[in-house]
């Protein structure tokens, strides 16, 4: 029997999808000559609110908030979005550990729209009250905190938390009922591993470092990827050609920004089938990812225009749209 509990939400999302930017809209935005014209274009399309300050960061932040406001209005179980919220949660953990260990205050570094907001996270870390954190964060939080206190190695702290974040995403994906979550988690972890391999190859990191940083997943072999990274970027591309990420190998050869774009485009291609589902959580997750991708693309264009980059350089970084 098909479960119809998402019928209302999916129909509402179908209406909202009409307002998503298409590739043609992005072309129109690209055609704007100045940063100010771009900002006017997106506000004319309904981005931001009447009281939102006329600057890119405020408008884009407001749009991020709108995504989750809509989801909460639909009265659905928000735990289905855990896979998507883990990166922000683990970012808060990383930021709190660094702030406490370095005894420096950096305003605006936390995501407030999380299960544990910045203030609460700071309090937990200051009191070393790691037991208050979710199960999948406790061990990593303790290890990262102690390593930063004793070694002052910020990169090691990042590696420990980033790996824990990937493992949490992967675990949540495996436990999810819907394929979209499973596929998204698999792709996220695999792409994170590829990025680690590429950076490690560029900075000549050791095998031990890569094994510590990479999270296991089904579609890639961490062992083979690490060995390829030791041999260089060409070896990584060669290894990827034999996996589901062959397209990434081509992009890697082109440029780092082409690879980043390929990663995001792959996510958008993965969620395309959700346009034709009527009763599952898939279209909602796809909408969240599509909106985040849209906001990221607009941010790239706005910052490119603001800094006077040539159109070709901006266009190289523009992502594919969902609709």
């Amino acid at each position: 029997m098909t479960d119809t509990k998402y019928t209302y939400a999916v129909a509402r999302i179908r209406s909202l999808e009409v307002a998503l930017f298409s590739n043609a809209t992005i072309d129109q935005l690209m055609a704007c000559k100045t940063y100010e014209e771009c900002l006017q274009f997106i506000t004319d399309k309904g981005w931001g609110d009447s009281d939102t300050p006329m600057n890119a960061e405020a408008v884009l932040c407001r749009e991020e908030e709108k995504i989750w406001e809509v989801m909460r209005e639909m009265r659905i179980d928000m735990s289905v979005f855990d896979v998507l919220s883990y990166p922000n949660q683990f970012h808060n953990l990383k930021a709190a550990i660094k702030e406490v260990c370095t005894e420096m205050e950096n305003p605006g570094i936390f995501y407030d729209d999380c299960e544990i907001d910045g203030e609460e996270m700071l309090e937990i870390i200051r009191n070393k009250d790691f037991i208050r954190l979710p199960d999948n964060m406790q061990a990593a939080a303790k290890a990262a905190y102690e390593s930063l206190i004793h070694t002052r190695d910020g990169q090691l702290c990042d590696v420990i938390i980033d790996r824990a974040a990937m493992e949490a995403i992967y675990q949540a994906g495996r436990q999810a009922k819907d394929d979209i979550m499973k596929n998204y988690a698999e792709d996220t972890v695999a792409i994170a591993d590829i990025k680690i391999a590429v950076r490690s190859a560029k900075t000549a990191k050791s095998m031990e470092f890569m094994r510590r940083a990479m999270a296991e997943c089904e579609s890639l072999s961490v062992d083979q990827l690490s060995k390829a990274a030791l041999a260089g970027e060409d070896a990584i591309a060669e290894y990827l050609l034999g996996t589901a990420y062959a397209g990434g190998a081509e992009a890697l050869k082109e440029s780092p920004s082409a690879f980043e774009r390929w990663c995001d485009n792959r996510v958008i291609q993965t969620i395309q089938p959700q346009k034709y589902k009527a009763f599952t959580i898939g279209p909602l997750v796809a909408y969240v990812l599509a909106r985040q991708n849209e906001i990221k693309t607009v941010r790239i264009i706005l910052s490119g225009k603001q800094n006077g980059f040539p159109d070709d350089a901006i266009r190289e970084r523009v992502r594919e749209m969902y609709v």
Partner: peptide, 17 residues
């Protein structure tokens, strides 16, 4: 009932439909 849920979802965003 099922169709009504979907209809409500659409009208929430676009009452003209």
């Amino acid at each position: 009932g099922i169709a009504g849920q979907a209809a409500s979802g659409v009208v929430t965003e676009d009452p003209s439909k």
